[in-house]
Write a protein that binds this DNA or RNA. Structure first.
Lengths: 193, 193
DNA sequence: CAAGGTTGGCTAATACGATTAGCTTTAAGC
DNA sequence: GCTTAAAGCTAATCGTATTAGCCAACCTTG
């Protein structure tokens, strides 16, 4: 019996692809194994458990999202950077709804956890964008959380088809970006109360 | 063997309580049955499946959230209404993280689905609050989606302990409300671009 | 190149949770 | 007091995660 040449990253990658196709609940050890041309128990040579596999998918998704955002905002600033970041994040989640869904509920085990590190990279790119707005330094964390909430919320709701009625979601997202831009502008210290 | 006097609502209520205590993954037919003093198969006299039970939990959570928001904004308008609504929603999710988590991923089966109806009630209260801002009628849907995304995102991230660093989350939420208020104000048609 | 140990795959077995089948008793209505 | 639908039970089935233990394939080292 020839070897399949697997490693943890390959298993996680196959599971992530499966998650995107079937949804997070469709990620089963049997299906992942089948896709890799291997029997189910063999997966345990590379991952600890299904929970561990989901954690790996979440870390992969967060890292890919961080890359997408970093690339999107490179060379941009101000409102252009904000818009590019929002779209990059939203596009990533729409393109990979299953693996991003794995991040909801996944909790980092510690500061060195790849999931935590990837999350830090996302936050870092967001912070760079926010530097284009005149936010007081001691309010930066609040602004980051708010922005992250806005994007996470929109992306997950849209990915889950949570928006029932059918006004164009692309127009809504453009509206959201405008709203965020104006809100951030008005939070600068010399803006009227 | 005396009867337990169950009905679908009682089963869903017990499951929802369990979800809050153990997380959504902890909701198992066996545990729900045990909590109701009944054997597992008996639950199937009241619900169709575990998926059906989760759907019921989601509908319950959405209905309770709708009630909380309705009560919170009663008699208020403008910025006060916005703040009260945001806090009511956030507080509800923090108080019932498990059952609210059931709404992510639950999808309404049709227009008459209780989950859809409860969602409409939430949207309705949000729309009432937004009427205090001068939003163009054809942009109301965009504003609703944006507001919902913001709240859903913040509440779920906080409930999942997704905010790693430890700046006071209450202060962050106050900042978020201020941000939303200013953003909405500036989206009025006579505001500068 | 041959020996030996480590790794990655396999089959078989176990455990647990969801679900179904079919029986029995309760309780509600006539 | 009967009849009957509903609500509970036990027993059985099935799918999925996980573990145990075996064997072949690769890598190392002489």
């Amino acid at each position: 019996m020839p070897r399949a040449g697997l490693d943890p990253a390959a298993v996680v990658a196959a599971a992530a692809a499966l998650a995107d196709e079937t949804g997070p609940a469709g990620v089963t050890m049997g299906l992942v194994a089948e896709r890799l041309g291997v029997r189910t128990p063999s997966l345990y040579k590379h991952i600890d458990s299904l929970a561990d596999l989901n954690h790996g998918i979440a870390a992969l998704a967060m890292a890919e999202a961080a890359d997408a955002i970093r690339d999107a905002v490179a060379g941009l600033s101000g409102r252009d950077a904000l818009a590019a970041m929002c779209r990059a994040f939203r596009d990533y989640v729409l393109k990979h709804p299953g693996r991003y869904a794995a991040t909801t509920g996944a909790t980092a085990t510690g500061p060195g956890d790849p999931l935590a590190l990837a999350g830090e990279r996302v936050i870092g790119s967001m912070a760079a964008v926010l530097r284009g707005y005149r936010i007081e330094p001691d309010q930066m964390n609040h602004a980051l959380r708010t922005l992250r909430s806005l994007l996470h919320g929109f992306a997950t709701l849209q990915a889950a088809n949570g928006f029932q009625w059918d006004a164009d979601q692309e127009v809504s997202f453009t509206w959201l970006i405008d709203f965020a831009h104006r809100g951030l502008m008005s939070m600068s210290p010399d803006s009227p109360s």
